[in-house]
Nucleic acid binder design. Structure first.
Lengths: 256, 256
DNA sequence: AAACAGCGTTTCGAATAATGAAACGTTTTT
DNA sequence: AAAAACGTTTCATTATTCGAAACGCTGTTT
């Protein structure tokens, strides 16, 4: 299709393209439906699904639709990259969430986007809720701005070259120069704010998590409704998050 | 190879058999190493790995060995079966762990084994630690005995027919009749004990989690070293675990 | 009641993609 | 300096994937 150099296993690629469809927030699919979505032949789709079903990668639900299966859950839990980061962050994130009463996230940069590795949700009814393993644009999130700010100058300029700074709200930074200045500020102050740049009414604060070599390996954020975020709280929020980050950093240096 | 009736995508099957190798607690593999382990040709293995790498399903680490990739993490987090069970159990499990100071697990029965869906670890240094998404034999664990006990008579007799009751310690139940009697006891008392039947020095207590139709959909256990488990604590442990189970049951009935 | 439209599934010859022995270029071990 | 082990590439042979058409079923429309 689009691969030029190597000869890869086309069926395997097709199988995973099928699974990729599930990333777009629909949980159950019929054969013909998936065939139409992927452009594959109905028979091919059926055979791929049957194969995946025999492997427990997908399974049929009560409506005879195909849903993702437990094999993926099993394998997903084995993914070792960032596994320690996820493990060691759980308790600190929850302590932060409990203290601040807002949703807390831990994320890393991946493919120029923020990948959410872990979270602890606010105990309150009105709260931010995200899907672990999902992605978000970096330029309009506090997490993303921290992770970008501490990237190499090369990576940053590449990012700025490739990214489309779409305005998601009236506050979104849509200008490369402005974003670069913002990133320099973030790096100097060691924290980032997202003042309703991703979504109206949504405010975030994020700080970096360092490894023992003083490289930024992740970022922690606190997100909540603008109605609850007062500017006089920011300093105390920051010190609480930093305490959590410090705990995580301690655990990580034990190992690596 | 071993499939008779349907014609499935052999390459896809091979790809996942490769990934299955990672379930046996080794995180990084070379091409020839994986080829030997699976019995596939070196070239085939290489091409499958290249394909999977192009899809982010595996990736090379610093030693040029192949490790599981973030695509699996991403897809694994989308698996919807038991997703709500995992979400709603997190806080209750942690409350139990905090109160009892022992590791708490939530598991379901799958392929005649216990699948660990979630956990909250003991705050103490000496503690039980398990891999989420991994499996354990049912007949010698408290979780497993609860889940078996509340299965249908048919399922139980099938289980007893197929399982090999290997003695893992001197306390392991290795006799089908004994196990059946034990399961009846468990069902009557609505809790199960594992008195060092899986591992010497390891004791567990487990209770069922019911859905609104009074079917058992999961089980919660508390596990710790025998040195800390006194018989006079069991009653209080049970009431604490039951409180947690009740919370989970409440959340589940909100949805279903 | 009969015809229709939708679904997942099966069939089978034609077309294609996966296969593996051998060779290659590096790196590591002897 | 030689040998062994690694990942990788090549290419003719072979096995497998492919898809149009047909099937059986269910639910809806005429």
């Amino acid at each position: 299709m689009e691969d030029i150099n190597k000869d890869l296993n086309l069926s395997v690629i097709k199988a995973f393209k099928l699974l990729d469809v599930y990333l777009n927030n629909k949980q159950e699919w019929g054969v013909r439906e998936l065939a139409k979505k992927t452009g594959y032949n109905k028979t091919t789709t059926y055979r791929l699904l049957s194969t995946l079903e025999s492997l427990d990668v997908v399974q049929k639900n009560d409506n005879d639709k195909y849903i993702l299966g437990l094999k993926l859950f099993e394998l997903g839990n084995l993914v070792s990259i960032h596994k320690s980061l996820r493990n060691y962050s759980r308790i600190p994130l929850e302590n932060i969430a409990k203290e601040i009463k807002e949703t807390v996230h831990l994320g890393v940069l991946r493919n120029d986007q923020v990948l959410y590795l872990n979270k602890a949700e606010s105990p309150l009814g009105l709260k931010v809720s995200t899907q672990i393993g999902s992605y978000q644009e970096a330029y309009c999130t506090a997490l993303g701005k921290v992770l970008l700010a501490f990237s190499s100058a090369n990576q940053i300029s590449n990012y700025l070259k490739n990214v489309k700074l779409k305005a998601l709200t009236s506050n979104t930074i849509t200008n490369s120069e402005d974003l670069l200045i913002e990133l320099e500020q973030v790096k100097k102050k060691e924290y980032a704010l997202d003042m309703e740049e991703l979504e109206l009414g949504l405010i975030c604060i994020a700080i970096p998590v360092f490894n023992k070599n003083k490289e930024v390996i992740a970022s922690i954020s606190v997100s909540g409704p603008s109605s609850r975020f007062k500017s006089e709280n920011i300093a105390s929020y920051l010190s609480i998050i930093k305490k959590g980050a410090f705990e995580i950093e301690g655990h990580l240096s034990d190992y690596n």
